[in-house]
Design a protein around this nucleic acid. Structure first.
Length: 433
RNA sequence: GGAGAGGUGGCUGAGUGGUUGAAAGCGCACGCCUGGAGAGCGUGAGUACCCCAAAAGGGUAUCGGGGGUUCGAAUCCCCCCCUCUCCGCCA
């Protein structure tokens, strides 16, 4: 969430930055400031009353110790009314508090100054590209055709057991998926200095709130209930991305500066309701309720936030480079930026069978927005507690990468070559019908 | 799922209604001491919020979380969460 002190001290700046997102959130600033002012007013009053009560209580203790029971009783009588007033004010504070927090939790992060202005994905500038679109001496097939011919994915049986939006990888398809996961984990842990973690796949709502998914996007998630007890719902959710759990690993901690940077790499399945998303029902692997992803997380000192951000984009790019896939890097404009992010790059890989770029990675610096929500801090050299920058990036998402790979390396006879970097993990050079 | 034990500051651990924000020990930081280190001695130190232009200073809250009793709660009552042990079940 945003720093209430910043909103208090520079409301115009905050309004202006929020306005660039085009979501109308700047209108909340005045409401927030009014609540904040009321809160402080109430606090000042109730706290001075409590101070008074504490003084009298101590005095009563002293009087009782000195056997002056009558005097103590008199004091008690006096103070009784104070308690009622305090309780009343406490309730008022709690009300204002929760109203203020609810507002704060709904306000998105401020876009970084370097983020281009824009309304939608159409305004995202391409920052750089790698490679060229491959050419074919034949009409390239879609991954759906290729997968069915080669027996890599059984969509029909996946739908039979789980409905649409699920894939059953079979035989060499399953092995290819596993090889890609293994390849990426090895790359990031051995060459980019990330620590591998394999986290729980279900988390409590506090974690979703911590990364900024709650309360705004509550309908996107799969809630899990143990048994048939509806009261259990809302206790645990399937993670929509490893970010949800890994970014929260140190929540409510005060780290030492020497602990930073923390770099984690995690392979996990990801689960998404995709409620209302166009194309869930379309064939193929492009939009799924369940997909695999290798995620990168960094927790760094604010001074190093944007340096680390650029570095992370390069780490994700190396996956696509090593696999020899054509891709482009896009910088999200203000209007397309995610709720928690201050700056985001997307990696879009070319899928010849689709004739389109597919988003396989999104690398964001959320600055201290998430750290503040999850009460994650570190103690700097001066002994000050500060919120670190929390960054997340896909390194990369699997299903679409699978699509791009199969479509890019398809041959005229319907077979698929395996790029050299993947061969040690896949153990074969090609997939033939 | 059943039975029991327990959750106190960075850690260990005292504390069952009244100067207890919390003994003691360890660890930590700084200073003295030392050629240097250690030992020893001394000093300091939680977190969040509020008041104050700021600093200084003052205040409130915080002993797993929430609620209650009371003038006053780490201490009493209720609910919840978590950890550990044993049993059951189970990959």
């Amino acid at each position: 969430m945003l720093d209430i002190k910043l909103i208090r001290e520079a409301p115009d700046f905050v309004r202006q930055r929020l306005a660039t997102r085009g979501g109308g959130d700047e209108a909340l600033v005045d409401e927030l400031l009014a609540l904040d002012e009321r809160r402080r007013k109430l606090l000042a009053e109730v706290e001075s009353l409590k101070a008074q009560r504490n003084r009298v209580s101590k005095e009563i203790g002293r009087l009782l110790a000195e056997q002056k029971t009558a005097e103590a009783e008199a004091r008690k009588q006096e103070t009784r009314a104070l308690g009622d007033r305090i309780a009343e004010l406490d309730r008022a504070v709690a009300e204002v508090d929760s109203a203020r927090d609810a507002l704060l939790l709904r306000m998105p992060n401020l876009p970084h100054a370097s983020v281009p202005m824009g309304r939608s994905s159409a305004d995202n500038p391409v920052v750089r590209t790698f490679g060229d679109r491959p050419t074919f001496g034949f009409a390239p097939r879609t991954h759906v055709e290729l997968c069915e011919r080669l027996g890599l994915v059984d969509f029909a049986r996946a739908a039979k057991v789980s409905g649409s939006g699920f894939a059953l990888y079979t035989g060499r398809g399953a092995r290819l998926e596993r090889a890609l996961i293994q390849f990426m984990l090895e790359l990031h842990t051995r060459e980019h200095g990330y620590t591998e973690v394999w986290p729980p796949l279900m988390v409590g709502p506090a974690c979703l709130e911590g990364v900024g998914q709650f309360p705004k996007f509550k309908d996107q998630y799969y809630g899990v209930a143990e048994g048939d007890d509806p009261a259990q719902l809302g206790k645990l959710y399937l993670i929509p991305t490893a970010e949800t759990v890994v970014a929260n690993l140190h929540r409510e901690e005060i780290l030492r500066e020497s602990d930073l940077p923390l770099r984690y790499c995690a392979y996990t399945p990801c689960f998404r309701g995709e409620a209302g998303a166009a194309g869930v029902g379309t064939r193929g692997l492009i939009r799924m309720h369940q997909f695999d992803k290798v995620e990168l997380i960094q927790i760094v000192a604010p001074e190093r936030g944007y340096e680390a951000h650029e570095e992370m984009v390069r780490h994700a790019e190396r996956v696509l480079q090593a696999l020899g896939l054509h891709y482009r890097v896009v910088l999200l404009c203000t209007g397309d930026l995610g709720f928690a992010s201050a700056k985001t790059y997307d990696l879009e890989v070319w899928a010849p069978g689709q004739g389109a770029y597919l988003e396989v990675s999104s690398v964001s610096n959320c600055e201290d927005f998430q750290a503040r929500r999850m009460r994650l801090r570190y103690k700097d050299a001066q002994g000050q507690n500060r919120h670190p920058h929390v960054l997340n990036g896909s390194g990369t998402a699997l299903a679409r990468l699978f699509v791009a790979l199969v479509e890019t390396y398809q041959q005229a006879d319907g077979s698929v070559r395996i790029p050299a970097a993947l061969q040690p993990f896949f153990q074969e050079e090609q997939i033939v019908p």
